[in-house]
Design a protein around this nucleic acid. Structure first.
Length: 737
DNA sequence: AGCACGCCGACT
DNA sequence: GTCGGCGTGCTC
């Protein structure tokens, strides 16, 4: 197809500008197709852009209109559905489409570098054929034989030539010189080496009635948008349901996209899918090299990947034959990108993608987010419940320990010590959760009340005893641990407790019991993670102590006691989502207990046993908690009963940040149904030597809010001080710091 | 963002 | 006399 010279290319570029740029098509031949990449001149540089549209005329004056340099793709690297999704995302998050694309695709595609793997091929030229026919090569039998071979073979690769003759290179050189042979560079499609083993049919377990019902419901209508929530308690076998529904989709010659919050959780999931399907799923996550990521992308784009398993950016993976999306642990905060300029919720985009594509989507969780529960209540989502554990284990018993009325040793109460002793005696394993790493959260002078605080943040230094360091967990500052007070020279002492200190305490209390500590300091790489998990799984370790790291994903079948050392941080937070997060953490951690035949026990230490949130969670479980939490949200008109957008700003001076937000607020001529709140400094205003502040926009009318923002941002873009600060728009913010 | 252009201060 | 500081204007 030759494109008329008049065609205008609409090109998205990776620049922070909320518009696309018009170009004339390149003079080189080739098919101009939407979704392909072009190299274009932009100012004084050459950039790689994406063709996101074609037009027959441009409103840009002809003097400004420039010509694209080169087409980079002849066939698709981004299917039409994915591009449509990227366009929707750019408009929903009010973010430049070029930057959304840059976040969505592998880096290798962005730089315009070699998309394909190339293979050198040698073939006979027409003059070579001629020469052969005329007998001109008769005096060089080797050369003749080679040309003869090429008559029947079309082309030979270096490997093939090697087989033909050990010293083929001088031969080829001589023939090339006479123009009888030519070397061509051919792009080859790299196929992912897939280790194939026959699917183990026997490994398909018998489903529980609830699992079978869920599979049937999800598979009833496979070719239409149908959001389903799979609300399954820990151990109820959600993964088995995912695999069975995926099997139906794959049997239909379509592929399945599975999103997970973190890659550390995937090895087991990958292994289970690999075993069941006989082919390892195509994985996509940030730990891949550029080359691996490109390969995975192409594999998916060509429809060769039946199952794509990835973290949040995989929601944009090009999959022309996408038949279903599964979002595992849909409540998990990691599914939202909350750093950098482009902040998005992979779960929300996934729902949109399923809707655009007209396919089912499964949102799985033991603790669904309040938004999701709200969508169930309003009949937008269909809920399928797995209330029984597939291993028949009874639900663990949850119990509060009142720290105010108990003797305690280094933050561990008497009854917890007794419970640990009891479970260890009964050959159970004990899991202890504390969401705070390091030795102690503060270092205090015993005489002059000096506190070690981070010079770059409004935060205290955390004591890291074994490393002999003070570290800031907010900016990465580090300094040596002082032995005496730098102010008065008197003794200093660590105050409060982190996992490092608790591990010391536990070793004192249970000197003969092997203990494994899992947090970011104790476990720094994959190998250490594997070995720590192995210690627990083999039963060598009897006590497992850790942070978030142990709350997610991993199975610890022999754990019979779970202790949550301190649940109180989340109780009095100003963030409206704190309660939800706390409840989810408690339930997720509790879910690690008693997965095997033995029933589990969960102890939760608190200073506030009367707190309604804890009482509620205890008596009513997660669903009961969620119902009352939703009522509170409704009364306060917080999400999901309203929609939030935060304009966040950071600058080297607090005043600059607040001035900018105030100017932005003045520029807003917001309709009555949109409230602007603030600006206010962030709870931790100073972080890494920058001062943070935010302006909050709130409305019950999503459409109206978004229309307003479109208009407003064009004005915000013109605020002059904009160069001395950085700002981001956070649509549906996960936390309001 | 990134790059060019432009106008003022301390250097060979 | 110029090298280079970073303000500001623009990118189809």
């Amino acid at each position: 197809l030759i494109v008329p010279a008049l065609t205008i290319l609409r090109v998205a570029l990776d620049v922070p500008l909320r518009r696309v740029f018009d170009y004339l098509p390149p003079l080189t031949d080739g098919t101009v197709s939407i979704g392909a990449r072009v190299k274009v001149p932009f100012g004084s540089r050459q950039l790689v852009g994406w063709i996101v549209g074609l037009a027959d005329h441009s409103t840009v004056s002809p003097s400004k209109l420039r010509r694209a340099t080169e087409l980079l793709d002849s066939n698709s690297v981004l299917d039409a559905g994915t591009l449509a999704l990227v366009e929707w995302t750019a408009s929903y998050y009010h973010h430049p489409i070029g930057e959304v694309l840059a976040a969505a695709v592998p880096r290798a595609l962005r730089t315009g570098s070699i998309l394909n793997t190339y293979e050198q091929r040698w073939r006979i030229t027409p003059t070579g054929r001629d020469a052969l026919k005329k007998g001109l090569v008769n005096r060089a039998p080797k050369q003749q034989a080679l040309l003869q071979l090429l008559l029947t073979h079309n082309y030979l690769t270096a490997t093939a030539l090697q087989q033909f003759h050990e010293k083929w290179q001088p031969l080829a050189r001589a023939l090339t010189k006479k123009k009888w042979l030519e070397k061509i560079t051919h792009a080859v499609i790299e196929t992912q080496s897939t280790v194939t083993s026959p699917p183990l049919g026997s490994s398909e377990p018998v489903l529980t009635q609830e699992q079978r019902h869920a599979v049937e419901e999800i598979c009833k209508t496979l070719q239409q948008f149908k959001p389903v929530v799979l609300h399954g308690v820990t151990g109820s076998g959600k993964t088995e349901v995912y695999m069975q529904v995926a099997k139906h989709v794959v049997a239909n010659d379509q592929s399945v996209l599975i999103l997970v919050p973190e890659i550390s959780l995937t090895p087991q999931l990958v292994a289970r899918f690999a075993e069941r399907f006989g082919v390892a799923p195509t994985v996509m996550h940030s730990a891949l090299t550029d080359r691996e990521r490109l390969r995975a992308w192409q594999h998916a784009d060509r429809g060769q990947a039946k199952i794509v398993l990835g973290t949040r950016s995989a929601v944009f993976c090009s999959m022309p034959k996408l038949g279903m999306i599964i979002v595992d642990e849909e409540h998990d905060a990691s599914l939202k990108q909350h750093e950098g300029g482009f902040r998005y919720s992979a779960r929300d985009i996934a729902v949109r993608r399923a809707q655009q594509t007209g396919i089912p989507i499964v949102l799985g969780s033991a603790t669904p987010s309040l938004e999701t529960l709200y969508n169930i209540n309003t009949q937008r989502y269909h809920c399928l419940t797995l209330s029984r554990r597939s291993d028949q284990a009874p639900a663990p018993r949850l119990q509060l320990i009142d720290l105010k009325n108990e003797h305690q040793f280094q933050g561990i109460s008497h009854s917890v010590v007794q419970a640990i002793t009891r479970h260890l005696q009964q050959r159970g394993q004990v899991l202890i959760f504390l969401n705070r790493r390091g030795y102690a959260p503060t270092l205090l002078c015993t005489a002059c009340s000096w506190l070690a605080d981070c010079p770059s943040c409004d935060a205290k230094y955390t004591v890291h005893q074994s490393a002999e360091k003070l570290r800031c967990h907010h900016c990465g500052n580090e300094t040596s641990l002082p032995e005496t007070c730098p102010q008065c020279g008197y003794a200093v002492k660590p105050v409060g407790r982190g996992t490092e200190r608790v591990s010391e305490t536990l070793r004192t209390l249970f000197p003969d019991v092997p203990l494994v500590r899992m947090d970011r300091d104790a476990v720094t790489n994959r190998r250490e993670l594997e070995s720590a998990l192995n210690e627990v799984k083999t039963g060598n370790a009897r006590i497992l102590l850790g942070t978030q790291m142990i709350a997610k994903g991993h199975d610890f079948p022999d754990v019979t006691l779970v202790v949550i050392l301190n649940a109180d941080q989340g109780l009095f937070s100003t963030d409206f989502r704190a309660a939800e997060r706390l409840a989810q953490t408690v339930i997720q951690v509790a879910g690690r207990a008693g997965r095997a035949s033995r029933s589990g026990e969960v102890l939760l230490q608190t200073e506030y046993p009367e707190h309604p949130l804890l009482k509620n969670l205890l008596t009513e479980g997660y669903s009961g908690f969620a119902a009352s939490a939703l009522q509170e949200r409704a009364q306060a008109a917080w999400p999901p009963y309203s929609h939030l957008v935060a304009l966040r700003c950071s600058a080297s001076q607090a005043k600059h940040a607040l001035d900018f937000l105030n100017t932005a607020k003045e520029l807003a001529n917001a309709p009555k149904n949109i409230q602007l709140r603030g600006p206010v400094p962030a709870a931790m205003a100073k972080r890494a030597d920058k001062y943070h502040a935010q302006l909050l926009l709130e409305s019950t009318q999503r459409r109206s809010l978004h229309q307003f923002i479109d208009d407003w941002l064009t004005k915000v873009d013109t605020i002059p001080q904009i160069r001395q600060l950085s700002w981001v728009l956070d649509v549906d913010p996960a936390e309001l710091f």
